[in-house]
Amino acid sequence: MTGALIYACVGAALFVCGVAGLILLPHLLRKILAFNIMGSGVFLMLVGLGQHDNIPDPIPQAMVLTGIVVAVAATALALAFVRRLLYLTSKAQFVANSKSLDQTEEKLITRERNKEGDASK
């Protein structure tokens, strides 16, 4: 077994850990972490398999570099959404009833507007 295959196999193992975590863990922060572990596994597979006799192939390297940056951006966006959800529901979990979420948001918006109105008076 060459070094390249070890990287690829570890990548596959990480990917599977991420999949299991994504399904099993209810907390959204953990889901985001699991998703990132999945991504890291895929990157490791791409970089591991994309080399011949320990000479790296520049194309998978460039792909993974692009992928890492996009993954960071997607994670940041996901975290921003989780924070919004936490603000609305005080829970970082998926909401079964999205209608109640809309109502909470409306309530908060009207409350903020009322406050602004009071302040301007």
Binding site: L5, A12, A20, I23, L49
Partner: peptide, 25 residues
């Protein structure tokens, strides 16, 4: 199912033929 998927993936990686057609690098 995750364990099965992982073992399948690792098996596929080990069985992957060395490609002789594509020489992008």
């Amino acid at each position: 199912f995750s364990a099965t998927l992982g073992l399948t993936l690792i098996w596929a990686i080990l069985e992957l033929p060395v490609s002789n057609h594509i020489h992008l690098s």
